Amino acid sequence: MRRYEYVGPAELRDLPPVDVAGIRSRDDLAAWLATRPRGELAEPFTFVVDLGGTLRLAPRRSEHVACAVGRPVLAAGEMGFATGEPGSAAGWRVDRVSNQSTGYCPDPECWPAVAAALDAAGTPHPGGFTDAVLFRRCTSCGQRNIVHDGDFACAVCDAPLPVDG
């Protein structure tokens, strides 16, 4: 699997991790989610899959690089959960997941790492990104861009972005 190095601002690289959980089982997930304020459960969480294949979760406003403790990752993005049985470890499932991380800019092809981490933790998931994001670096100005609606134009200088990764 491809490794993604941190490509975001240098000043964020050394941020301390904030309330990061390594999720290896359904019980790990249920225990960590039980500590979250109710309002926080309504929005997606920051996640990375570390090089060992472990899913690491942090509150949404956490930086991916802090969640990864500054290390390379196999995947990164945002992940939301739903449950059919409130408070039940067996009831939690991933209901939305993206690869949106401007710090790591992972390709949608990182999904197998996410699926493997969730499968290892016994957590049901949608089988693919519910919102896959394409990142491209502008060859004219160097800015990282998220491609929206197939528009391969730099948001900063309007130069064409590479179509292929």
Results as ranks from 00 to 15, higher is better:
R2C: 07
R2W: 06
G8H: 00
A10C: 01
L12Y: 14
P16L: 01
P17Q: 10
V18C: 05
D19N: 14
G22A: 15
G22Y: 01
R24I: 10
D27T: 15
D27A: 15
A30H: 10
L33Q: 11
T35M: 07
P37H: 07
R38S: 13
A42L: 15
F45E: 06
V48A: 06
D50I: 11
G52F: 04
G52S: 14
G52E: 15
T54M: 11
L57P: 02
A58V: 01
A58P: 03
P59W: 02
R61L: 14
R61W: 12
V65Y: 06
A66E: 03
C67K: 06
C67Q: 01
V69R: 15
G70K: 10
R71W: 08
L74C: 11
A75G: 10
G77N: 03
E78R: 06
M79P: 00
G80Y: 03
G80M: 13
G80C: 04
G87M: 08
G87H: 04
W92K: 12
V94E: 02
R96T: 13
N99A: 01
S101V: 05
Y104V: 03
C105T: 15
P106S: 06
W111V: 04
W111F: 05
A113W: 04
A120Y: 09
A120T: 13
A121Y: 10
T123Q: 05
P124V: 13
H125M: 05
P126K: 04
P126T: 06
G127W: 07
F129Y: 12
F135I: 09
R137T: 14
T139C: 10
N145S: 11
V147S: 12
A153S: 15
D158C: 13
A159Y: 10
D164W: 04
